[in-house]
Design a protein around this nucleic acid. Structure first.
Lengths: 136, 136
DNA sequence: CGCTAATCGGAACGAATCGGTCCTATTGGA
DNA sequence: TCCAATAGGACCGATTCGTTCCGATTAGCG
């Protein structure tokens, strides 16, 4: 019931990126310095965020990346899912995986969908732009 | 962003216990049979749930346990916290632990308290009695 | 046109936590 | 008084997480 420190770092990095001018060229090195995240870890994170479609990357010397969408259109749920995978409380929530021994007999399972939705909704309600702004 | 299978089992077991008559004497063995949870694991869980004050236990031959509170007064958050520990999204949320390198400089941290509260609220809103009832 | 430098991308290693099993201490009943 | 059944605590293997390192790719410069 806590998110991994990788996801934590990813949120911090994305918030830092959102504070830069919209189309500016960013590098993992710069963000690592600004956020304090170890550089190799920052590189790994940029890779996952790019694979999820949250960052647009460019390779090479003048390369780097930038936010693929505007900050208000990126939610906390997007970032967490990019790093940790789908947000599911229990394994029986997503349709394809069936490894619970109880399966159909489980009385609790029907309720989990609603619980899962509530959690996910709470995370989707938080946009990156709100995280980026400095709070008093 | 998913709860451990131990917590998952605990929820299933508590729901099964809630379906029994209020003051009935229960044993880890019986609940293990009803839920399909391996017996040693069920024993481990009863221990943690009892330590958290959710179950009232009695040792000896005629021993066993029962719900310490009425089912409507036990929330999903209670069960999860009993097994997994405090519900905190990031390590910087709870006051005493300060292991984040950024600390005061972190711009994201002030927002985390609200996020954490939203998640916790979603779990507290689900009572054990609602989980116990059979859904169509 | 070739070389160098800087950056992303993927692969391998070590550490920590989780999940499961076994054993011991305690207590009510025969 | 002895026995049996149960909770409680300790140990061990396994999976995942977190970090680090190395290779692939491309723009800038001589």
């Amino acid at each position: 019931m806590r998110l991994t420190s990788l996801a934590d770092y990813a949120v911090v990095m994305m918030a830092a990126a959102a504070r830069h001018p919209a189309g500016a060229r960013l590098s993992a090195t710069v963000l690592a310095q600004e956020t304090g995240v170890p550089l190799p870890t920052a590189q790994k994170l940029t890779g996952r965020l790019a694979a999820a479609g949250l960052l647009a990357t460019a390779r090479g010397t003048g390369g780097g990346f930038r936010l693929a969408r505007r900050a208000p259109e990126i939610s906390l749920a997007d970032i967490v899912e990019a790093v940790e995978g789908p947000i599911v409380m229990t394994s029986c929530v997503d349709a394809e995986r069936h490894e619970c021994a109880l399966e159909g007999a489980c009385q609790v399972r029907p309720h989990m969908g609603a619980v899962n939705g509530a959690i996910r909704g709470a995370l989707q309600g938080v946009s990156l732009s709100s995280l980026a702004e400095v709070k008093a």
